[in-house]
Design a protein around this nucleic acid. Structure first.
Length: 601
RNA sequence: CGGGGCAUAGCUCAGCCUGGCAGAGCGCUGCGUUUGGGACGCAGAGGCCCACAGUUCGAAUCUGUGUGCCCCGACCA
């Protein structure tokens, strides 16, 4: 590609809307353009990167035995009613109506469509196992798009779905995808950590996310500093700091005027936070397919040094939807905010207690009376939880549960991260809801078990930049760079010999199978070098009259500190060696070795 | 969905307080000089000042109502 003909210009200054390095560099380089909140165009350079990423994904999916399909992006809304997900997705689902008033949805994901497709065409156990995938545009009306391509409303996703006869088969399919994902992220130069994750509204049992650790991330990840345990904070298990032991003392009221926070309470009474109890209140809604929604108040209790995690709480209640109570609701249930107490609480309020409260005697809790707390509150004696479970977030410094189980001591740390991919064991969730079965070997019917596996293509693109840039611009990983070589011609309009040399080299490299961006513009050297650094091709070659006269070409890897002179006849072999080396740098071993390093960006 | 900020040329921004011809730098076009890390001179092109309503002789500027975008939080298959 001749740069003089390439659509788009580089910018010296990043548009103000960019607040992350990757977003700013992609805009400055003319890779992407924003049409509206969370909706982007890919310009020629960005489109090439996107295609390269898709190519890597295709190779790995095909290599893992998956078959590519294309599913419709526009879907009948009633398909989403079959699984109850039209309601569960809420406003995130883009909905529209066609000319016949039929309700439609733009696909945010394709479990329903693929399950239907499978049901229509798979007839016997001989059709199993099968894994289908597509690379396609998804639509999700996110409440708040952000971070350039990180959270958008229209995006390209690779989604794959596996169907197996039994759990053992699902394990095989799941593991094949898991391993393919490791190679995909490595080849794209994005270091990721597999973490245990909550399955959320998609359902199923068990999932893992591939997380790119970066301080611009929107998820909080808990990692052990001793073993390889890593989990999303919504899921992370941990060892609770111990409670202070003691025999149950008589309950007593204590005046605590104006003391409404745990910190203030602990300071006022001269005790530790773990000697207190705190509560938060929610309204829970339980959706069910065949019955009206059940709505009930929830009073979530935990020890004062821990924080309630809404996802864990919702799971403890068997998968309900939660929202915080508003002040008027708090009052209507007889709860005094700031001094809330489980002691003597109205019976219609469901009390959920964290595990930390089971063996925590003599806590200070609210008296449910403004200005007063109760000392020596004991679970089981003074109050009783309807549900006891893990409903709090792991925090940095907590003990690692896996290490503890294996007789080691490990401590957790917290990092920010971006979800690059997610693999789920869906189990029989969708095949059951949609009544899918195939004939088994003995003539009976068999309900297949499913897995689903997603990767965000745009997120890989952004994360690759986030992981590979410097003060001057992007440094693309070899396999996803828009071009292999950035060929810079200096002063070609003044030196016919050098110009011919550059043209010849352009042709030679192209003939050798390299993709070359040839800067043939009539610009000063500084402009060209700066653009080359900004755009970030792995190798820069410079042809000038000086070099041509000396029979050399100057070569500089984007990540190298210095340029080197290469004999003209050796250039193609030299570029090939650089490329092989750059690809080797994105091996699974090398990329994963740095993945757990805190906050790369 | 709550809170905050912003909206003027392709990009970065002045001008607004105190109403009176629409501005600068970069970028873009032409010509000339220059040519190894974002050159210089000359001449140009480029605007529904987010929209609508109001106040006024007169609105980018003042008032009101919207809309859009960004950030924080909630949400996130």
């Amino acid at each position: 590609m001749r740069m003089s003909r390439m659509f788009g210009h580089t910018l010296r200054e990043a548009p103000t809307e960019a607040d992350t390095p990757s977003h700013a560099l992609l805009l400055r380089g003319g890779y992407i353009d924003q049409l509206m909140a969370g909706v982007y165009s890919f310009m020629p350079l960005g489109h090439r990167v996107k295609r390269k990423i898709e190519q890597v994904i295709r190779e790995e999916m095909d290599g893992a035995g998956a078959q590519e399909v294309t599913l419709p992006a526009i879907q009948p809304a009633e398909l989403w009613d079959q699984t109850g997900r039209r309601a569960a997705m809420g406003d995130v689902l883009f909905q529209l109506t066609d000319r016949r008033e039929r309700e439609l949805a733009l696909g945010p994901t394709h479990e329903e469509v693929i399950t239907r497709l499978f049901a229509d065409h798979a007839v016997s156990y001989r059709d199993l196992p099968v894994t289908l995938y597509q690379i396609q545009t998804k639509f999700r009306d996110e409440a708040r798009p952000r971070g350039g391509l990180i959270r958008v409303r229209e995006f390209t996703m690779k989604d794959a779905y596996s169907f197996d006869a039994d759990d053992a088969g699902l394990d095989v399919s799941y593991n094949a995808m898991f391993e393919a994902y490791r190679r995909i992220f490595a080849r794209c130069g994005v270091p990721t950590v597999p973490v245990q994750a909550d399955s959320g509204a998609i359902g199923g049992k068990g999932s893992q996310e591939f997380i790119f650790l970066t301080n611009i991330g929107e998820d909080t990840i808990i990692l052990c500093d001793t073993c390889t345990y890593a989990a999303n904070q919504e899921k992370a298990e941990f060892v609770r700091p111990s409670s202070i032991a003691g025999d149950g003392q008589p309950i007593e009221e204590v005046a605590t005027p104006g003391v409404t926070s745990i910190e203030a309470l602990a300071e006022f009474l001269g005790i530790e936070a773990r000697q207190t109890a705190k509560a938060v209140f929610f309204i829970a809604t339980r959706h069910s397919k065949d019955a009206p929604d059940e709505v009930f108040p929830v009073f979530a209790m935990t020890r004062g040094d821990l924080d309630v995690n809404e996802v864990k709480l919702a799971n403890a209640l068997g998968g309900v939807e939660l929202r915080p109570m508003v002040d008027s609701e708090v009052a209507s249930y007889g709860i005094v905010a700031g001094y809330a107490s489980p002691v003597g609480l109205r019976a219609d309020v469901r009390v959920v207690a964290d595990l930390s409260l089971v063996d925590a005697p003599n806590l200070v809790a609210g008296a449910n009376k403004a200005g007063f707390h109760l000392r020596n509150v004991n679970h089981g004696r003074d109050w009783q939880a309807a549900v006891i479970g893990d409903i709090v977030s792991a925090q940095a410094g907590h003990g690692c549960a896996r290490c503890a189980a294996e007789g080691r001591e490990g401590h957790l740390r917290a990092e920010r991260g971006i979800e690059m991919g997610h693999v789920f064991r869906l189990d029989y969730t969708y095949t059951t809801k949609m009544n899918v079965s195939v004939q088994d070997a003995s003539g009976g019917q068999l309900t297949p078990t499913m897995g689903c596996y997603g990767i965000g293509v745009g997120r890989i693109l952004s994360a690759a930049v986030e992981a590979h840039f410097d003060d001057n611009g992007i440094a693309w990983p070899a396999e996803i760079a828009p071009y292999d070589v950035h060929l810079v011609g200096i002063g070609l309009d003044r030196d016919a010999e050098a110009a011919a040399d550059a043209e010849a080299l352009y042709a030679e490299l192209t003939a050798a199978g390299f993709e070359v961006l040839f800067d043939d513009r009539d610009e000063r050297p500084g402009v060209k070098f700066n653009d080359a650094d900004l755009l970030g091709m792995p190798v820069r070659l410079t042809v000038s009259s000086r070099n041509t006269k000396a029979g050399v070409v100057e070569s500089k890897a984007r990540t190298a500190a210095e340029a080197e002179s290469v004999a003209r006849a050796e250039v193609v072999a030299h570029v090939r060696a650089l490329r092989d080396q750059a690809i080797a740098e994105c091996s699974v071993e090398r990329i994963e070795a740095i993945a757990r390093r805190p906050s790369l960006a």
